[in-house]
């Protein structure tokens, strides 16, 4: 299993925690740091965050499971968030989501056989002027048609091989 946080990151967080009045406010920062490093947040990640903040794993778990962009299950190298809210819907978002499912041969919530892509329907990404849109990792794309999607997927496949 890949590392959850580097020793240096842990030291930095410890120093920060010692400095502030309400360490618990760092919970999302810690969970996001674990996720950035590890790809997703396993049980051990929840326990690590709890240990650093002096909380129980349950107290961390009820935060981790509340937020959609904290992954508590493994995801592919490139999590694809496809917007299914009203502006993207009005400009072909549903057809785009179907195209993604076909191209990747997966249903929403699943990960492609090569382990590269996880398809996650998401609410509005805040790029309504560029609908229909998707976000891969933290990168927003839009407006998109099927060809654009194919091109982006091909680029990422190539990147993964390099």
């Amino acid at each position: 299993m890949a590392e959850l946080l580097t020793a240096e990151q842990i030291d930095q967080f410890r120093a920060h925690i010692a400095h502030i009045e309400h360490p618990r406010e760092l919970i999302i920062d810690l969970l996001r740091a674990v996720q950035d490093k590890h790809g997703w947040v396993p049980d051990e990640g929840v326990e690590l965050v709890a240990g650093l903040l002096g909380l129980t794993p349950l107290e961390v778990e009820e935060i981790a499971t509340f937020y959609y962009k904290i992954y508590r299950r493994p995801v592919g190298r490139y999590p694809i968030h496809i917007c299914d809210s009203i502006c993207c819907w009005s400009r072909g978002g549903e057809a785009l989501a179907e195209h993604l499912q076909k191209s990747l041969d997966i249903a929403p919530g699943e990960t492609s056989a090569d382990g590269l892509f996880t398809l996650l329907p998401t609410c509005c990404l805040g790029v309504c002027g560029r609908a229909p849109a998707m976000m891969i990792g933290r990168e927003s794309y839009g407006p998109l048609n099927n060809e654009d999607v194919d091109r982006v997927l091909a680029e990422l496949r190539q990147e993964a091989q390099a």
Partner: peptide
């Protein structure tokens, strides 16, 4: 403070809870 995705956080008291962790 960078959040992690939920619409309810736009409600001001939910937002304050979110900031507190």
């Amino acid at each position: 403070h960078g959040s992690a995705g939920r619409y309810i956080l736009g409600e001001e008291t939910a937002l304050l809870n979110g900031l507190e962790g």
